[in-house]
Computed example of a mutant assay.
Amino acid sequence: MFRNNYDNDSVTFSPQGRIFQVEYAGEAVKQGSVVVGLTSKTHAVLVAIKRNAEELSSYQKKLFAIDEHVGLAIAGLTSDARVLSNFMKQQCLSQRLTYDRAMPLEKLAALIGDKAQLNTQHYGKRPYGVGLLVTGVDETGPHLFEFQPSGLTQEMLACAIGARSQMARTYLEKNLDKFADCGRDELVRHGLRALKETLVQDRELTVENTSIGVAGLKEPGKKALEVFKVHDGADVKDWLNSVADDAEAGGETTEGEGMQVDE
């Protein structure tokens, strides 16, 4: 049988037990610009490379604040990410209005997983062509969740998705033991170093194409939260300079960027 007999909708399995439209949605994620997330005992950090479609256009946003304690990074179709981010904002607001408390991150990740998985059960719908890294801080501390188009969500200590993300994952795996005890600034620097591993030779991290999102606890063991904030432009300059200083001192660097997809 030709493969095309089984990829016309998202509810038909191939004889090998595969759903091709879900796999196609995963390919859209792999072509998006890379985003990196990592956590310590006190903070959760997202780092992303922004793209502009042409010289005359602005850079597309990669990080979004969902509530004061949670944010996300996207890789894939920005329009699909907007649908999911609006759904998450509504759920967080509903939680605060109904229970007067912040939405637990594990529950929020499960809700978007259920919403995405429904699209693989009903004829005429398609999977969301976007991957998300959802991060933030709740009553149990910092968390990072990976969302995939199939509806799978899983908690991660560190993660990277998007084009050339395997190189960032390799860096994260090598340095995983260091993250738990890192403060905010050192955790951001680890994220930037992982991001630099994905770059191609003619590209580099700049204040124009780099976004950083941070949430955390103000002091270890305290309930006071450092709300999720997206840092762009001049706000990221000091972090970029500190990573550049590491490179000049003999630290590991590989410059460049990935393939194209984010709208």
Rank of each mutant, 00 (worst) to 15 (best):
70 V>I: 14
166 Q>I: 04
153 T>C: 13
221 G>N: 09
95 Q>Y: 04
45 V>N: 03
93 L>N: 14
120 T>V: 06
216 G>H: 01
152 L>F: 12
17 G>E: 02
87 F>E: 15
236 V>C: 00
234 A>E: 05
258 G>T: 12
139 E>D: 13
111 L>F: 05
18 R>T: 04
5 N>Y: 14
247 A>Y: 11
112 I>Y: 03
34 V>N: 04
150 S>K: 07
59 Y>E: 01
100 D>V: 03
140 T>I: 12
45 V>H: 06
59 Y>D: 00
228 F>I: 08
211 S>H: 11
231 H>Y: 14
15 P>I: 06
222 K>D: 14
155 E>L: 07
34 V>K: 07
200 V>Q: 14
3 R>I: 12
37 G>K: 01
144 L>I: 15
259 M>T: 13
77 L>R: 11
51 R>Q: 09
203 R>Y: 13
30 K>S: 03
111 L>H: 06
183 G>E: 08
132 L>R: 07
148 Q>F: 00
249 A>P: 06
47 V>Q: 13
62 K>P: 01
222 K>S: 15
140 T>P: 02
21 Q>V: 08
115 K>L: 14
193 R>T: 15
119 N>T: 11
52 N>D: 11
126 R>Y: 13
54 E>L: 09
161 I>L: 04
32 G>H: 04
214 V>A: 11
49 I>H: 03
112 I>K: 00
227 V>W: 12
165 S>H: 11
251 G>N: 09
151 G>W: 02
238 D>T: 11
49 I>D: 07
83 V>L: 12
161 I>P: 00
49 I>R: 10
242 S>W: 04
263 E>K: 09
90 Q>Y: 12
107 K>D: 05
18 R>F: 06
48 A>W: 05
180 A>G: 04
17 G>V: 00
191 G>F: 07
55 E>W: 05
98 T>S: 15
48 A>K: 05
197 E>T: 11
229 K>M: 06
196 K>F: 13
18 R>K: 15
8 N>P: 02
229 K>N: 09
235 D>E: 15
24 Y>C: 02
134 V>K: 03
9 D>S: 11
212 I>A: 06
174 K>H: 09
82 R>L: 13
94 S>M: 11
8 N>G: 15
224 A>G: 08
246 D>R: 09
5 N>S: 08
229 K>T: 14
107 K>P: 01
195 L>R: 12
258 G>W: 05
27 E>K: 15
137 V>E: 02
30 K>V: 00
163 A>C: 08
105 L>K: 01
208 E>W: 00
2 F>I: 05
78 T>N: 11
51 R>H: 13
38 L>E: 03
194 A>Q: 07
159 C>F: 07
180 A>K: 10
206 T>G: 05
119 N>Q: 10
213 G>S: 07
214 V>L: 15
185 D>P: 09
19 I>V: 12
85 S>M: 08
3 R>M: 14
193 R>P: 02
124 G>F: 10
20 F>A: 02
244 A>W: 07
42 T>W: 00
58 S>N: 10
42 T>F: 00
263 E>W: 10
61 K>P: 01
260 Q>D: 05
246 D>S: 12
152 L>G: 04
161 I>W: 01
131 G>R: 03
77 L>D: 09
87 F>G: 04
252 E>D: 15
192 L>A: 07
195 L>F: 11
